[in-house]
Structures are given as C-alpha cells and as structure tokens.
Amino acid sequence: MSDNVLANLEDYQAIYQRACERKGGPGAVESLLSDPLTDGEVALLGDDRFLAEFSKKVFQSGFVWRVVRNKWPEFERLFFEFNLDKVLLMPDEMLEQRAQDPAIIRNYKKVRTIRDNATLIDSVRREHGSFAQFIANWPATDIIGLWAYLKKYGARLGGNTGPYALRAMGKDTFLLSRDVTGYFSQRNIISGGVNSKRSLNAIQQAFNQLQQQSGRSMQALSLLIAISVGDNLFS
C-alpha cells in the first residue's frame, strides 16, 4: 500500500471522538466494544471446538443463523461432539446418512466439509501440537494471512466464514462488515473488491496503524470503526 493511501486514514482519536458523538460519550462507546481472548487462552481451547465452530459457520453461511443455532445440539450428537479422531473415521456412507437426518440441515456438500476440515485440523495439530496453538501463535498483524490459509486449505472457509469463526472462538480479528468496508471505501483506502489482495493488505495495514496508535485489539478497533459510521451493522 502506498503512503498516499495510508494518509487517507484518520487517526485513532478522530474515529473514537466521532463514535462518542454518535453514541453518547465514552461510557456508551466502551459498553459496545469487546476484546478477544488472550493468545494463551486461545491456545487452551479444544481442537474439537474449532471444528464445531467452523462447521457451524459453514452451515450458517447463506442460511438463517437462528435455525442452525437451534439445531446445533443435534449436530453435536450426530458428529460425536466433533471429536476429530471419530469424525476422521466417518466413511462416505455415514456422512450421506447424516446428511439425510431431518434433525440437522440436510445439505450433503456442507456435511462433507465437517470431515474435510477435520483433516485440515488434524494435519496442523500433528505439526504444531494442537490446532489451537497454531491459531494462537498467528499474529493479528497478519490476520489476513490466516484468513488466506483457511480459505486455501480448509473447506468453505473463505469469504467471511473463516473470519467469523475465528472471532467466535476468541481469536483477535477484525471483520469486514458492511460498515467497516464502507468506511475504508469512503476514505479511498480501498477501491474495487474488498476481498482483493490489494484491498485486504490496505485494510490490514490500516488496522495495524490504528493498533499502534491505540494499543487496542483488532476486534475492538473493528467494532469502533463500525459504530463511528454508517448504520451500525457491526459484529
């Protein structure tokens, strides 16, 4: 990203002040912000929980989130609480059977991703001790690199699916909600598609600069930008 583009970015205090003006002061703003888990806390999470969250977000993509949440206990039951070793042993015939069960969302292609992403997690844990440790060690200053990794090696974890799953698991990440992407477009920090390599690099560098100025997490900064502009459609 060129210095000219970075120059279009407001400093942290300007964004924070506008959020305060819109929301009624620092107290109101702080009540809307939240922080992720620490790296140490993320490292202690079970790899089965990452598989569960990836799977949940895959099924929620393009579907009514509430319906998936309501059916989730049955997903947990039918897929062995997302125990990696058990899921990896599930043959195609069993997956097909599960995909026909009315207790869950009957979508065979998405059901297949459960075993596919178990394979990803298993390969990573063999090299790094645990998938959770691998995620914890990945720096937030290159979170788009982690997004790209999940998109490349995972199943249906591209777009917002991987990032939203990471946020749900407590990994520090910004999110490309409509308000956040709208902000960067209006400031001419990005142009064209938000998911282009150039746009993602520009947004990452912008967040890195804001973090250096504020000392806040990417998660809090993402939320702050969202409530400082637009319709407050933030996550």
Results as ranks from 00 to 15, higher is better:
D172T: 05
R156Q: 13
S177T: 15
Q219R: 13
K71C: 04
G159F: 02
I135V: 15
R126I: 02
D85A: 13
F134W: 10
I144R: 08
L37H: 05
L33E: 01
E30N: 15
F184T: 03
V29F: 00
K152G: 04
A165V: 07
F134I: 06
R69P: 00
N208W: 07
Q204Y: 06
D101E: 08
A132E: 00
D142N: 12
S185G: 13
G170I: 11
K56A: 11
I104N: 08
Y108M: 10
K197G: 06
R98Y: 12
I135A: 06
T38V: 00
K110S: 09
I15P: 03
F75S: 13
I190S: 02
S214G: 00
S177E: 12
M169R: 09
Q133L: 14
W65M: 03
Q205T: 13
D172L: 03
G27V: 07
L120H: 04
V67E: 11
G25Y: 01
L221A: 06
G193N: 13
A148W: 01
I144Q: 01
D85T: 12
L221R: 07
V194A: 12
P139Y: 09
Q13V: 06
K197D: 12
Q13F: 05
S2D: 14
R18W: 02
S130T: 15
L224C: 06
A19Q: 09
G25P: 02
S61E: 07
Y149Q: 04
N188K: 15
V29P: 02
D39M: 00
G158L: 00
A14S: 15
I135N: 03
L233H: 08
S217M: 03
I203T: 02
L157Y: 07
F131Q: 04
N8I: 10
Q60R: 13
Y183T: 09
Q212I: 11
F134H: 07
I144F: 01
Q213C: 03
Y183D: 10
R115T: 08
E127R: 12
Y12L: 04
Y153T: 07
M94E: 15
S214L: 05
D11L: 08
I15C: 06
I227N: 01
I143E: 07
S222D: 13
L33M: 03
N208Q: 09
R77T: 14
I189A: 06
N232R: 07
Q100E: 13
F134T: 05
N188Q: 15
E21C: 02
S214I: 04
G40N: 10
K197N: 09
G215D: 05
A132I: 05
D92P: 00
N160L: 10
Q209S: 09
F234H: 13
D47C: 06
K171Y: 15
S34R: 14
W147S: 06
D92A: 13
R167M: 12
Q205W: 02
